[in-house]
Design a protein around this nucleic acid. Structure first.
Lengths: 207, 207
DNA sequence: CACGACATTGGACTATTGGGCGAATTTAAG
DNA sequence: CTTAAATTCGCCCAATAGTCCAATGTCGTG
């Protein structure tokens, strides 16, 4: 695994060097050469000293390169972390993080995971709490538990955007039967159509 | 750091043993002796073969012991992950996770972090987006920023389950105009109907 | 075995959606 | 001022979605 640090004028901070002795530094993305066949790389992008506008564009370019990208900021901020992760970054940390932490991050990312600091992580969990706490526990999670087996099958398909015809083929039943199940599902889950059902199944609040 | 695995009849799975050669296995929490002075421990709690009711009680006991707890399930599930993390767990993973992953988790937790799988992590991030995305930032999801103002207005309404008629009233335009905008949105965002649009706007992957 | 819940399907409709064709009006940019 | 893009909307048509009522078969419980 080759570690490439982009930003900070192409210089490698001592901490980076210590974590990855054979790391490479680039001052900008333009210097990035295509990866050799079979070469695995990890991009560390230091976004300090970049304006908010160019930040996203640069990160998107980084991500478009195909290699996993970890964004480093001199002033980590929760909202920015979400933004980066949502747009495809694999990690978000301080640009002067300890070498041992950099190694830890690289390991998590190398195994396909996303890494964020404990504080951000805890906030994410509490947010998830807020979102999933909206569903009243006493009423069986929007009546999802009261669906029959077939109804649930059909509902799941709607939840990923399938049409009635597709569902009918997928589940080997007539389109008419799909409709019958769906009518029942709408009733049980107290929604009026497939759009609301799809959203509800994905924990999205309606208007 | 001493690793103690609770559950699975007190037996250590080969994977656990491989990750932590001097790990200890306990069949239940009652066998847990108080930690010696200055001894740092990590509890791995295998919740397979426990009923939903006793699960939370047991996990709470684990957590009350003071040592960081990582919950392991035979059938990991997003909602359960949130539940566990919210209640104080430091990690949530599969009970037959690879040894290298167990080591990775232990390192993250040892440094005060929380660990969850990539899938759960991504979902948490998308949820955070939903909660904190009230402010109209120049979000960059799929061709969202290429939509015109009106198109975005209409798309947002669809994203919370509104019908064309409702959107028309809300935005003071005719139903025909709503359709016109939507047709354009479908095209720009590369979706075929309002269901897929609603899901895409909420960061839900389609089938 | 009878009864009720569930699954399946059909016919007959109604409602909603998505879009083609055409066109007027505004707004933004050069 | 001139051109391009954005916004608006009517008429009409086809495809999808959704509902009501009814019939048949399956399966587990009492």
């Amino acid at each position: 695994m080759k570690h490439i640090f982009v930003g900070h004028g192409g210089r490698l901070r001592p901490r980076w060097q210590e974590a990855f002795p054979d790391a490479q530094g680039l001052s900008s993305l333009f210097e990035l050469t295509p990866a050799r066949e079979g070469e695995k790389r990890m991009l560390w992008f230091d976004i300090s000293n970049t304006s908010a506008q160019e930040r996203m564009a640069l990160v998107n370019q980084c991500i478009a390169s195909g290699s996993p990208v970890i964004v480093m900021s001199s002033l980590p901020n929760d909202d920015e972390a979400y933004e980066m992760l949502r747009n495809g970054a694999y990690g978000y940390c301080h640009n002067v993080a300890a070498p041992s932490q950099l190694v830890e991050i690289s390991q998590v990312v190398e195994h396909g995971g996303l890494w964020v600091g404990a504080a951000v992580m805890r906030r994410l969990v509490s947010m998830a709490n807020r979102v999933s706490a909206d569903k009243p526990k006493d009423s069986n999670i929007y009546g999802l538990n009261e669906l029959t087996h077939k109804e649930l099958d059909v509902a799941k398909q709607v939840a990923v955007g399938a049409t009635n015809k597709e569902i009918a083929e997928q589940l080997h039943m007539s389109e008419r039967t799909v409709k019958a199940h769906l009518s029942s599902v709408f009733d049980k889950m107290a929604v009026r159509d497939r759009v609301q059902l799809a959203l509800t199944m994905n924990n999205v609040k309606l208007h």
